[in-house]
Design a protein around this nucleic acid. Sequence first.
DNA 1: CATAACGTTCACGTTAACGGCAAGGTTCTG
DNA 2: CAGAACCTTGCCGTTAACGTGAACGTTATG
Lengths: 158, 158
Amino acid sequence: MTAESTARLLRITEVADEVGLTTRTVRYYEELGLLKPAARSEGSYRLFDEDDLDRLRFIRGLRDDAGFSLAEIGQLLEDEEARERNRARFRGTTDVRERRSILEDALDRIERQEVSLREKARRIDQMLAEVERRRGHLEGHLRDLETGHDPDHPAATR
Amino acid sequence: MTAESTARLLRITEVADEVGLTTRTVRYYEELGLLKPAARSEGSYRLFDEDDLDRLRFIRGLRDDAGFSLAEIGQLLEDEEARERNRARFRGTTDVRERRSILEDALDRIERQEVSLREKARRIDQMLAEVERRRGHLEGHLRDLETGHDPDHPAATR
DNA sequence: CATAACGTTCACGTTAACGGCAAGGTTCTG
DNA sequence: CAGAACCTTGCCGTTAACGTGAACGTTATG
């Protein structure tokens, strides 16, 4: 379809450098099933496209920023694919009861994810609030120092 | 004789059950220095008070909800104690330059924590938004089914 | 005060998430 | 077409975060 679509496939060290992982890690993720076999060259070099890069960046983000284990990440990605399959199933039938069942199933999974994420977010927001409270406190003290106002020795009046 | 303020000290299985950890894990956390030696009984049973429970719950929350490693948690708790010591140092001097230096140092550490937490929060919010978008989508479909409205087959008139 | 129930300190085992070779093919480059 | 620079698949090593006894002391209870 798209004429430009052959963007050029990258080899493993290029992708590793690009997304900030090691080649070992990329292979390991493939071994775990987090990554599709991508594509192989004539010899058997792994070849990656832009979608693979996105997926790796996504995985890395979940791991580093959100603190998910690779098992949890695998679950999320699997759910993603189950979603795709469900869409196909959904379009493959016109039976209202079956369609509703498919949708409700999907909704259940989504809600479970939401609860888990919300708990994580709540905890982090709590810590952020605490940290900011302290920061405000410290900044207040610093301002006091700048203006020569000393709360510990308030009798500096004249 | 001892006032009522001595709330009663708990033994390790009681605390473990209470906060949802195993005894091994509690001992391990002490070994890592995440927990003070608490208190020991006549024999050498570990005895814990409410503060210990809070600390354990806090650790557990950071581990499970926020996805921090025990090393990171140790760092956070250490910073906490460094903060305490700094407050003592701060109160121990009246030299404005020294006070400012202490405050600026503390502010630096706080800001580093804040950046790290904010990145984590941002990533999780992103995922939550995505999850909710999907949820809305699914709920829309379900409503369509309930009302007999079928977007794929609009001419289902009877 | 016997004894069950609980605790203590080693110390070795396990799983996740990679690191680091070795032995050998593959691709590129002059 | 030869050598450098990559890549492949094993396979063993490592660190974090505990699990699981073993061998033995401590506390509560009928």
